[in-house]
């Protein structure tokens, strides 16, 4: 099965979405590799995003000595491999096929607070190597730890890194390599936003989801709608209106409230229901009343945020915007149920 890339009519799509041409088995479990220099922040990222480690606790992480593999079970199963920075994976002692085959994305972490020339050299060597062996791996460069840089210095550093990588690649005769850049930090939402974008490229159904979200927004004048994997706080799709980090932030903070309150009160066992121990959260199978739902109404703005569980692993979050009188709730409920129905056709439960 091939998938047409809806937005990019160019002959060779820059990013592959979902199909894994390197995959030996086609089992559809994409793997994300975290690579970069020692202490660039790979384990911190993995722990903060996938284990909810408080960012300040990453100060105590020790250097990684062997590859650490995490499996994520969600609407799509994927693996995250945290690679120690101390080895040279291009060395022939490593079986590069073992490491690089079947990967969906290579996330290369560069410490923007440190000297980065060597990191760039290694990154480019890796890209060149991949170009000859696994040419369609998405390379995602995280210009990381930008929290420590002043605004001006931050954008200068970012531009410098992008420029150097692209110059060196084009000197080596490689144009249009599938390389993207992000500014990230574990101390704010940027790392989650970046991961969301990395993962979206691996979802074949993305264009369909975007179209559904666009329709929802248009029908009930919603400002912005996101489809979240609520446990990881990664969003797998949003409508195609411009996104900004602020919209992601408000949704992510909203999820925190929901997750916390649900954890606190959702587990009190109902005498008639059997609860299993462990991570019985909002994403888990429902008991009692219908799917989780939430609404925040502001004193000064009317309805403002809306959340509804629409799939075992997926939650719809809408920023209703400044103009959403409380009586529009019925219209939204209706359209969301239409959306929910369409979604079950994309992702059968």
């Amino acid at each position: 099965m091939t998938l047409d890339d809806a937005d990019t009519p160019s002959p060779a799509p820059r990013f592959h979405t979902g199909k894994l041409p390197n995959s030996k088995t086609q089992d559809g479990k994409p793997r994300l590799l975290l690579m970069g220099q020692r202490r660039s922040g790979k384990s911190s990222i993995s722990n903060v995003v996938f284990h909810k480690l408080p960012p300040s606790e990453t100060l105590y992480l020790e250097t990684t000595t062997k590859i650490k593999k995490e499996s994520m079970h969600s609407f799509m199963d994927f693996q995250v491999w945290d690679l120690p920075g101390q080895f040279d994976y291009l060395d022939s002692a490593f079986d590069s096929a073992e490491i690089f085959s079947e990967i969906g994305a290579l996330v290369w972490v560069i410490d923007a607070q440190d000297e980065y020339l060597e990191a760039i050299t290694k990154l480019n060597a890796t890209i060149l190597k991949l170009q000859s062996t696994f040419p369609s791996i998405n390379v995602e460069v995280f210009v990381h730890k930008v929290d420590g840089l002043s605004d001006d210095y931050r954008s200068d550093t970012y531009r410098d890194i992008v420029q150097r990588v692209q110059d060196e690649l084009s000197d080596a005769g490689v144009e249009n390599a599938p390389v993207s850049f992000y500014q990230t930090s574990i101390y704010d939402h940027s790392i989650f936003e970046a991961f969301s974008k990395v993962i979206q490229k691996l979802i074949p159904e993305l264009p369909t989801l975007e179209a559904l979200l666009n329709a929802l927004c248009a029908n009930c004048r919603i400002e912005k709608a996101y489809l979240f994997d609520i446990v990881s706080k990664i969003y797998i799709a949003t409508d195609t209106s411009p996104t900004d980090i602020g919209s992601y932030e408000i949704c992510s903070d909203y999820i925190d409230v929901i997750i916390d309150i649900t954890e606190i009160y959702g587990k009190i066992p109902d005498p008639n229901e059997e609860f299993t121990n462990g991570a019985e959260q909002i994403g888990a199978k429902e008991v009692g009343n219908g799917p989780a739902e939430s609404l925040i109404t502001l004193e000064k703005k009317g309805n403002y945020l809306y959340l509804r569980e629409v799939h075992q692993y997926l939650t719809l979050i809408c920023i209703l915007g400044d103009d959403s009188p409380t009586d529009r709730k019925g219209l939204i409920d209706y359209n969301v149920s239409v959306f929910e129905h369409a979604l079950t056709q994309v992702f059968p439960r």
Partner: peptide, 14 residues
Amino acid sequence: SANFAELQIKAAGF
């Protein structure tokens, strides 16, 4: 003054 008039959560079991 960014107060909500109401926040509601309806979820599994509560």
